[in-house]
Write a protein that binds this DNA or RNA. Structure first.
Lengths: 249, 249
DNA sequence: ACACAATATGTATTTTATACACTAAGAAAA
DNA sequence: TTTTCTTAGTGTATAAAATACATATTGTGT
């Protein structure tokens, strides 16, 4: 019979002694290097892209790799992710979230290395690449073969995460210019989710959420009737965030 | 100007040499012990509970701790989680999912230890505790103070994860007896989500999903009109899983 | 002036969510 | 055996949200 009362006399007292030297305990554990990999998504020319570099391991010669680095000894995991992002792209004002830890013992040819994937979305036009070290470039997510390590899997899981996430949170706006047309917004959703959406219902949906600010400006240099430009009202969104509740499976 | 063509001659070639000795590279990295912590939720007497033990570190004397252990050198992270669950509860047929990595440098008094939380839901009645080593017990999630390490945060994040997860996946059935009444199911949702639900609409919702098998049996030994018993049709669910799509924030 | 291409818009229909109150069945007590 | 108590079980009206669908509009380019 079990009990739900932690102080019940029925519970056996532990018979071991308490460990007094926590440092010795931790020192006795096997240790593994920890890296952070950044999965940085961008949107451009109607394609979802991810920032990649060429792996500098001979073992993976020619293969593409995520932006990753070892976590420093006194550094928070998230801090490491922001650092890498800053070092590689010069940007520090972007959204960043942990996606998953990957720890297969054989994922690194040099021995076990556990990595924690962080995902970030940024607007390619706002983040012009100035350094091309290691062939840093935006790579179409549809065309990801020959990746180093388990980075294909990391990108795939991050992409799944993204698909779900943009339906629940207004992340998509991080991938667009500050001023955007509804068509651009719809394209983004269509490309990321891999679906076609009805234009009228899409507009209805977004206008009814009432988070778009009509800028009374229009697209320029388009070879057709220019669309209206909007920006996202983050302040209003933050105030009105709804708590989510809907059993649905 | 950036480019989206990875093979463009505009891209600077990397100027460093390729690293040939991956083992030396990995050996040069700082290394950190990795643990897995299992957040094992159970439901009993209309309360959501989590399996805890008494910490065996003197530093945390008297505080409650999750079931955790170091990840072995050649072990998958998930494998470690299943091993711990098996060792501690004797069970190996439960659902288990990674929730998050926790890696604050100061979360362990003995030095940096990174932990990866795995979440599991099980039916307390099916998993009678036979060992009370370290005062293993089911602890009400509402009453979690004095936890060792950052385990309060780990449980909180796992609980948030669970709340979201049970609305999208039929996890709740793992917490119930095989045969359950609709009232038991509704109680579970009400307790985990912390809301009150309308009985008629709740029934309507679940019957319309059509994943409940009517067993034509009734509750026994209840001091009131007995309710019908159902079981969940996992096979049908697996076949009819819907792909989720609904922009909603 | 004309063709072209994409913008902008409304309505009818279906589906889903919500709010709400009474009868039925069995157990327990009188 | 009657009464009381407690929970099970059910239906309908209303509101909100999702879906399907076609035409006029605006600016560009020839």
């Amino acid at each position: 019979m079990n009990t739900t009362d932690a102080t019940s006399p029925l519970l056996r007292r532990r018979n071991g002694k308490l460990i007094t030297d926590a440092r010795a305990l931790v020192a006795s554990y096997p240790a593994v290097p920890i890296t952070v990999d950044c999965v940085i998504f961008g949107f451009e020319e109607n394609e979802l892209k991810v920032l990649l570099i060429r792996s500098d391991l001979q073992y993976f010669e020619g293969k593409w790799s995520l932006l990753g680095d070892i976590v420093k000894e006194t550094e928070e995991l998230e801090e490491a992710a922001y650092r890498i992002l800053l070092q590689r792209t010069g940007m520090n004002d972007v959204f960043l979230e942990q996606v998953k830890a990957f720890g297969s013992p054989s994922r690194h040819p040099g021995g076990r290395v556990i990595t924690i994937a962080y995902c970030s979305l940024l607007n390619i036009k706002h983040h012009e690449l100035k350094i091309y070290d290691n062939e840093l470039h935006w790579h179409n997510v549809k065309n990801l073969n020959d990746m180093a390590f388990d980075h294909k899997e990391v990108v795939d899981e991050s992409y799944n995460w993204l698909q779900k996430r943009i339906q629940e949170h207004p992340l998509a706006f991080n991938l667009l210019p500050e001023k955007f047309s509804l068509r651009e917004l719809q394209n983004l959703y269509e490309v990321i989710l891999g679906v076609e959406l009805d234009r009228r219902n899409f507009r209805k949906k977004f206008f009814s959420m009432d988070f778009l600010i009509d800028l009374d400006q229009y697209e320029e240099n388009v070879p057709h009737r220019p669309g209206k430009l909007y920006k996202f009202n983050f302040e209003k969104y933050e105030k009105n965030k709804k708590k989510w509740f809907a059993i649905d499976f």
